[in-house]
Design a protein around this nucleic acid. Structure first.
Lengths: 277, 277
DNA sequence: CGATTAATGCAATTATAGTTGCATAACAGG
DNA sequence: CCTGTTATGCAACTATAATTGCATTAATCG
């Protein structure tokens, strides 16, 4: 911290010239933006010559302009949005819950940029049209498939949850036909099971939907519907929050489209449960 | 928007090579950071040659790498976190995804006021002490129990997932003893299975942890550890986002407390998976 | 298998960004 | 009003980044 940009500026404050001030105005007004610009670009915005930017950097103790800029950059990383929320929430270092919440919130807010309601509606309509829905998942994403399976059943859909591998999976895929739908989940890696199932679905003429993270870009052929959004930065602990939100939005959208159809199924379920009690 | 980077990628999706995808993984995983880097730096992170980065930019219709990078930069401005919150909350009329996200974010931020890191740490320590951990869940919360089960196993814990009812459940509870731990999930309703299991655990001297929503107030006797937080307003569609965040925080805290113990178990898992491949 | 094509890395080249010596302009103190 | 000092811009120069031709490798198809 002793060498943060702000500190360096304070040290040399009284030795700063007119040009220096104008440059710092630009740099500090929006560090996020100016950390991306070249010396010449910042200088132009400040209305001074590029040389002034270089001399400012040297005056502040950096080796040159690129050196000062990377100092700026690392400070931006340290105060980027998720961490900023974390600090606001907690104030205390090492509060894992607060950091986790901050990062989840940040990623959830980012979701809106990657998926739009129209795509969800398309997928929902396709599901409503399907005779039955097969859910195919491996590893951790089985959890999600299970969730979607429960919610769909409760809404009156005919579903089957397929989580096996190899022969097991192949056998369960057999019933899939022209009017059915296959929903696949893929996170981080693209399991052979998923690509295989998708190929099969295409062959028999079933509709396909893939729910995924950034791995969706690696899909060999485009499925009929893709709902994909990143789950956070690479270094972070990756959770299922974002894909779960996608599934929930899907359910809500189905409920709205079919206007009460699935709600009345819910009532039927309540009655059924009471009978068993 | 017609020429956003994401759009360009979709247009050329099937023409993307291995190197292209590795580069895009780096670029899209953390655009804020990579928008500051040179072609060579991004290429190094992606493990490809700088030339590949230049060619990708040209393939996507940009004049060259700097051109693509500035496209990336202008998109970053538009997705700054404070702006996103505003947009998400504002334009959510009829947009179910946006409203859902807004409500999830709101509830997640509220979580911090209901649970503090200290309570999570207490629970984590108890789990580390336990000989084995039984996870007891009914209905939808089975999904969560499954998630926690997977993560705990991966961290080297001995767990058992108990989701049955009546006799089935009773039989599975038999092994529970003095040094074991029982984790119960309860949302919205307080199933007889949960109260029964908790009573049994108390009787045999096992430690108990309950993960719940507002229903925690209705617990007949206080378990050793309670991690509870509301999942949103009553009228809303209630999701598992908040309890999932609690589970994830629990896992992260365990990982920190046992300092690498569970990480090395993860390594062992990777080796095991490869052997089966 | 061999032939053909596409993909990739290397290295040379070109373009751009960063730096610095020098001349000029602005200003303060004599 | 002159002189010395400092700040600034210009332009030449150096360093770094971007680009591209070419050779090699990997993959595809007959």
């Amino acid at each position: 911290m002793a060498h943060s940009l702000a500190n360096q500026i304070d040290r040399y404050r009284d030795k700063l010239t007119e040009a220096d001030q104008r440059l710092l105005d630009v740099l500090l007004r929006d560090p996020g933006q100016s950390a991306m610009l070249s010396a010449a670009e910042v200088a132009r915005e400040a209305g001074v010559h590029a040389a002034a930017a270089v001399r400012l950097a040297q005056k502040l103790g950096y080796e040159g302009y690129p050196d000062m800029r990377s100092a700026l950059r690392s400070e931006i990383v340290a105060s980027d949005s998720s961490r900023r929320i974390a600090e606001t929430l907690a104030g205390s270092e090492g509060d894992l819950l607060a950091s986790l919440i901050a990062s989840e919130v940040d990623t959830l807010l980012g979701l809106i940029q990657h998926i739009d309601q129209a795509a969800i509606e398309d997928a929902a309509k396709a599901m409503l049209k399907a005779r039955s829905i097969a859910l195919c998942a491996q590893g951790n994403s089985v959890v999600l498939a299970d969730l979607l399976d429960r919610r769909l059943r409760r809404a009156g859909f005919r579903t089957s949850l397929i989580t096996g591998q190899g022969r097991e999976l192949a056998e369960r895929l057999i019933p899939l036909g022209r009017n059915d739908m296959l929903v696949c989940f893929a996170f981080r890696r693209l399991p052979r099971e998923v690509t295989g199932a998708l190929d099969h679905a295409r062959q028999v003429g079933a509709t396909t939907l893939v729910i995924a993270d950034h791995i969706a870009r690696r899909l060999p052929r485009t499925p009929d519907h893709v709902l994909a959004a990143p789950r956070g930065r690479a270094e972070e602990f990756l959770t299922l929050t974002v894909p779960m939100a996608i599934c929930n939005a899907l359910i809500l959208t189905i409920a709205r489209i079919d206007g009460g159809q699935s709600v009345s199924t819910l009532d039927a379920l309540e009655t059924l449960i009471k009978r068993f009690d």
